[in-house]
Structures are given as C-alpha cells and as structure tokens.
Design a protein around this nucleic acid. Structure first.
Lengths: 235, 235
DNA sequence: CGCATATTTGAAGCCCATCAAGCGAAGTGG
DNA sequence: CCACTTCGCTTGATGGGCTTCAAATATGCG
C-alpha cells in the first residue's frame, strides 16, 4: 500500500542536487517554511495519479522507476515516458489542466509530493527553480520529439535495439543493468506486441548480443545491437 | 527568398494576444526598449533553422503554417509538429541546446525573430511572460504525448482519420478548410507512406466522407470519419 | 508441489511498404 | 498554341513485418 513516510526536508534531501531545487543556494532553504512536501512510498502497480484526474500535486521521483501511461478506449496502452531519479512529473496543473496520463510505479518507489499551490509560490520567489524547471520541460519535449521519430519512422527491431542501447547507456559488457519492464511494458513503450518483443529478444539471445537474468540485462555485443538499430543506412 | 520586413513593434502587433506577451499589461510595452525582434518572411521550403544548429533565436509565428521536422540518416523524415498562428518555437537555446529539429514553412509565412538573450532578460523581468511560456510548454508536451499514442497504438487509417478530424476541428460540412500539406507530408506526420495516405483518402472520397479541391478539404460525413478513427471499440 | 502468470514459439493472416506504371495538372519552351 | 517535361497523386501487384491466435514452456509464489 501507498504510505506517507514523512514530511519532506528539502535542505537535507539526498537527491536535492538532482531535483528542481538543485540550483537553489544552500541558505535559501532556511527561508522556506511555507512549503510542505510529503515523502510517499508506492508499491508497483499502485497508481500515483489517474488520467483526467484534477492535477493538484506535482511530484519528484526519489527512488525507483515510474511509467507514465496513456490508455485508449480500446484497451491499448502507450507508455509516454519512463521516469528516473530526480525527475519532476505531474505538473499539468501548472497549465490548469488535468493529468494527461497515469503515473504507475515499475518498482517500489519513493516520491516527494509537492502541492501545486505551494510550489507555484516557491517558483515565483526563486528564479533558480523556475529556470531549472524550464530546462527540464524543454529536455522533456526534446525527448518526446525523439520518441515520435522512433515510433513514426523506424521499424520494430530498430526501435527495440535503440531502446536497449539507450537504456543501458551503451555501457560496456560484463555489467548487469536492471530492466524492470515486462515484455508487455516494453511493447507498450515501443508500439509493439508482447510476442514481437519476445521474438527479437530471443533472436538476440541466440546470437549472443544480450544475456538476461531475472529482470536484469547485459549487452554483450553492442556493435551487433547498433547494427540492428539501423537496418538500412547509418543511423 | 527570406526577407526582413521590419523591426517588430510588440505593442501594436496584430497577434499580440496570441503570443507569449498576451498577458503582459498594455503599459508595460512602453518600458520595453531593449528588445529588438525582427519580422521576417519566408517562402515555402526555405529553412528557418536547421537541426543541430546553435539556437540563438526563438520565433513566434505570425502568419502561415510551419512544420517542425526531424531527419533520420536513412533519409526518412518525421514531422513532430505543425505550428499555427501565435505559436512560439525554436526555444531549445533556453536549455543551452542546439535546435532539435528543422523549421520549414508549409506556406508563405511571417515570423517574429526573438533574440534569445533579450527574451530571457524580458522573461526574468516579466513574470506574465514566464507564466505564459510555461503553460505553452506544458500544452506542447501534452500534445506530444497524444501524438505518441497516435503513432504507437493506432493503425494507419485511424491515425489519418483522427488527423483530419483534428485538423478541421470537427467543423460541420459545407466548409472548406485549407490543408497545405502534401500526401508526402501527411505521411511524414503520421508515419505512413505517400501511397497509403493516398489510398485512404481516395477510399473516403469514393465513400463521400470527404471532398477535396486544390489544397482544401471538406469533411462531408464526420460520423463516417469518426468511425474510421476507431476501427475497434469506441475511441 | 501446484497454481497463476510471464514468456516463448509456431502458424496464419492482415496491414502497410515497396515497386511499378499510369494519370492529370501546372509550367516551359519551341 | 501545343508538344513536352515535371511533379504530385493515384492505382495495382507483390511481399515483408508485425499482429493475432494458439499452444507449449518457463518462472515465480504461496
């Protein structure tokens, strides 16, 4: 079950330098006393917020991974982003809009809940916060544009290979990297079915491009994957 | 050829209420004297800026339509957004990044070029601008998320029908709406080939769902299109 | 262990891309 | 003015990539 762990203490927060408060000077935190974030934990598959729900809070991810999902009436899902440590999410309320997607943990997570009104006030008074958020939005948008290219202009195999390379940041071999996404979730991210994802991964296992073990993956032949990522010309 | 028409006059600008200065109080414009936007015209298929180019200017679209395009090394294009009157674009520089896409007019356009440095300064001094820009970014992001759903979770016919309905804002029939996109460009937007776009449009013309005439379209049977937009369940 | 769930694998078929040819409108030059 | 080119669009035929349906196998959990 979801559980409010504590009132947040921004000044001593372990991920402060990853958060939207990263550039805020140390001493400024003492002045902040009207700000009351809560640290909350969620289990996998609990829902942090629902699509179309009124957006009263933004969140910062402190620990674990979260997927942002949009659902179609026909039952299909599309994961529009996988969040990592320090990511801000659920900020639709800033534009007076309801949440545009659902937020669901992929692992056990710990988030910081930031009441919208208070955050807005804080942002007004501290241009450093405003600037950091702006940069995040632009980065977020750039990634969304990149994802549109993936979905619109590449084939399934290319998308999956690109995804693995990006997920593992092309790290050298002999390194296990956690991949807490089911085949189904990878499919929902890349616009493919479970079966297609499974087939490509099996193929690459047979070719020894990758090895897998209980939710972790290792890229053994990065060059092989890079080739798969661009069947045609050079990408 | 592109052509600098004049120095911009924000106070008397005809699209001021659509721009990021919409919420700025009238009298504030008199104080703005360090801001020197240029009004520039471009012909179709000229390039306003290139992908990976250093982003020194943001722009506001005053007149016409612009496509934002990303190119893959294999030659495929993906249109990530079609801009309309009042839209702000080319703001990657705010995050110290190069442009993430190309901006190319679909029609003759008139844009206002906003030097990044000056705009940043102006934004700092006028919270109204900052707030309007924030809302735009969030809306922009929401649209990008919606587009990912289109590309990842829907079939070609559904995407095209949805696109037409959205483009024409479901306006009732007997109304010609300009659609200055070639088959090829519609394909680049929706992740389809020229031929597929052409086939679906021809089919709908035969069924009298739509009629077309030199760059304009009319939706005759909106219900028919809506049905095509969701082959399966209800969308 | 036994059950539920996730993954793999196979077979069949649909959707869409690709290749190819023809059509029509707009523009060019003799 | 008309033949000729060009370019965008249409239409057909074929094939490949991915989905769908189905069943077997593996994995995790009480």
């Amino acid at each position: 079950m979801s559980h409010i762990k504590a009132k947040g203490e921004c000044k001593t927060c372990s991920i402060r330098n990853l958060s939207i408060f990263a550039r805020l000077p140390e001493d400024r935190f003492d002045e902040i006393n009207c700000f009351h974030p809560s640290v909350i934990t969620y289990d996998p598959d609990e829902t942090i917020y629902h699509q179309n729900e009124k957006a009263k809070n933004a969140f910062t991810l402190r620990q674990g991974l979260i997927k942002l999902v949009k659902v179609l009436p026909n039952g299909k899902n599309q994961i529009v982003k996988v969040l990592r440590r320090g990511d801000l999410f659920g900020f639709d309320g800033f534009a007076d809009e309801n949440y545009n997607h659902m937020a669901i943990p992929l692992t056990n997570v710990e988030v910081c809940r930031l009441p919208l009104k208070e955050l807005l006030e804080l942002k007004k008074q501290n241009p450093e916060i405003e600037q950091t958020m702006m940069k995040r939005w632009i980065q977020h948008l750039r990634e969304a544009e990149d994802m549109m290219v993936e979905l619109g202009a590449k084939k399934g195999k290319e998308r999956l290979a690109t995804f693995l390379l990006k997920w593992c940041e092309c790290k050298n071999s002999n390194q296990w990297i956690e991949l807490p996404l089911s085949r189904s979730e990878i499919g929902e991210l890349l616009g493919l079915t479970i079966e297609t994802v499974s087939r490509f991964l099996s193929e690459w296992k047979r070719q020894e491009f990758i090895i897998e073990q209980r939710g972790s993956i290792q890229l053994v032949d990065i060059e092989g994957l890079k080739q798969a990522a661009c069947s045609d010309g050079n990408c």
